[in-house]
Design a protein around this nucleic acid. Structure first.
Lengths: 200, 200
DNA sequence: TATTTTATTGAACGGTGTATAATTGTGTGC
DNA sequence: GCACACAATTATACACCGTTCAATAAAATA
């Protein structure tokens, strides 16, 4: 068969990503299959490779979609909130991960070949999330420490990530930790206290 | 061929784990292949399945070996150290991950099927590492807060893990973070200050 | 020595990502 | 209106993967 003007290239791209993301949410990274995605949308496997070039690029596109959803969720949660916005942001981190277990986990299961950098649009999506959190961190810092916001934001994200990761992968359950979110929030508060009390 | 008394079952187990671990360090979780391990030790793929029962159990055995090496390294680093032992422990966390990138990452890339618990000996190995760190955390806490050591240890491990993970998977590089270890150590100090200053 | 037990094999199966030659519908120029 | 060129799509082939299992051969037992 030849050209099938049902869809433009971009529409097809969108269809594949949508179904791919659904697949990722259902099956998880380990069981994800590009062939299965092709089958479900009624295209052949070859078409996926014409559109994305490789398995890795398909995964990057799907993970990019997850980042989009993540940022949108974060902004929705923060909209209109006046008090404790950073608290809400951390809670949203956990809640999104719990609501999209497999897709969220896939963000960290996938790794590019050594030395290869992620495409720019992927980096942009990630940075957008970090920037959104950075705004909340900055507003919690006293003005004289405003310059600490970027570095502190990245450290707090790592901190929260560690707690969230251990909560989802069963490590905390194995170790008897019962309130990962509450614990993560304690660590965030501890870090902010460093600057609120003018130590160092 | 039939019984080949070159090795006992346990010796063969050991041989497979040793070569499997080597393979894991070289290729990483995504490219790891049980068939390749079999080929390299001169046994057939069927034999691996007779010994371990499944791919998952083979991986668990290899990851268990990584945990053994991790604990041994941590103890070696702490041996004879008198000051700043917790600092050394955190440094050892990072250094082991860097020295055994692929094997360390595989600990977190691998996930058992939903609802399945890891075998007890795996849990024991993990707990041993946590306990070793807990001793150092406890010795940093004032006596009146000794009861906080278990929960705080698990939280600090998650904190350090998050920083180490982002350092290794390229996230920090993408975000311009230059000193992941130093940043993690700051977060550890912040958490300890909560109890050293008698807040809350 | 005959028989049972046990370790080991390797082929078969259904799945994967990847590459590419062949095919077919569409749009263009004559 | 028709032939041609283009571009999208497919089907097939390939080399791998984890998994299963009947067949086999060597050691242990009787």
């Amino acid at each position: 068969m030849g050209r099938r003007s049902d869809h433009t290239r971009d529409e097809l791209r969108e269809i594949i990503i949508r179904e791919g993301h659904r697949q990722m949410e259902e099956a998880g990274f380990a069981r994800f299959s590009a062939r299965e995605v092709a089958k479900r949308i009624g295209y052949s496997i070859g078409t996926l490779y014409n559109v994305f070039g490789s398995y890795d690029h398909l995964i990057l596109a799907i993970n990019g979609r997850t980042l989009d959803l993540w940022l949108a969720y974060l902004e929705r949660r923060l909209a209109g909130v006046e008090d404790d916005r950073l608290h809400v942001a951390v809670d949203a981190y956990f809640q999104f991960a719990l609501d999209h277990r497999h897709a969220w986990t896939a963000l960290f299961d996938f790794r590019l070949p050594e030395g290869e950098a992620p495409p720019e649009d992927y980096a942009v999506k990630l940075t957008a999330i970090v920037d959104a959190v950075e705004r909340e961190v900055a507003s919690e810092l006293p003005p004289e420490h405003a310059d600490k916001a970027p570095a502190l934001t990245r450290s707090l994200l790592a901190t929260v990530h560690g707690h969230c990761f251990f909560a989802l992968n069963g490590t905390f359950e194995l170790l008897g930790v019962t309130d990962p979110l509450g614990t993560a929030l304690e660590r965030v508060r501890d870090a902010l206290d460093r600057y609120r009390q003018n130590r160092e």
